[in-house]
Amino acid sequence: MRVNDVGGMEGFGALSVSESDPPFHADWEAHVHALVSALVRRGVFALDEFRDTIERMPPTDYLETSYYERWFRATTTLLRERGLLSADAPADG
């Protein structure tokens, strides 16, 4: 049972919906999205492995981070596990 599996869970409160709702809050979020697309297309990791890496974040971290923060942490985690990254960026574990 993993923290991402929230269907039916109580306590997340009301929705926050605005008039425009652009997909990205900040430019770095779009960059993270593009980076993940490129890495998956190139076969550096599989989409399923990417999802798995988000899901195995410690539940407290998952709930405290924003959507694209999770994406970025999972990306750096996978790249480190594969020995493809040395830069000091947040990761899990």
């Binding site: 770095w28 490129a38 923060e69 830069a87």
Partner: peptide, 28 residues
């Protein structure tokens, strides 16, 4: 806090650094 923006500044910098390293090594 999933809508939080509290680390935006430092995260933007970290994303640029990771992009730069992956471009330098030819991964993207």
């Amino acid at each position: 806090m999933s809508e939080g923006h509290h680390h935006d500044g430092s995260i933007a910098q970290q994303v640029r650094e990771v992009e730069a390293e992956l471009e330098a090594s030819g991964i993207v």
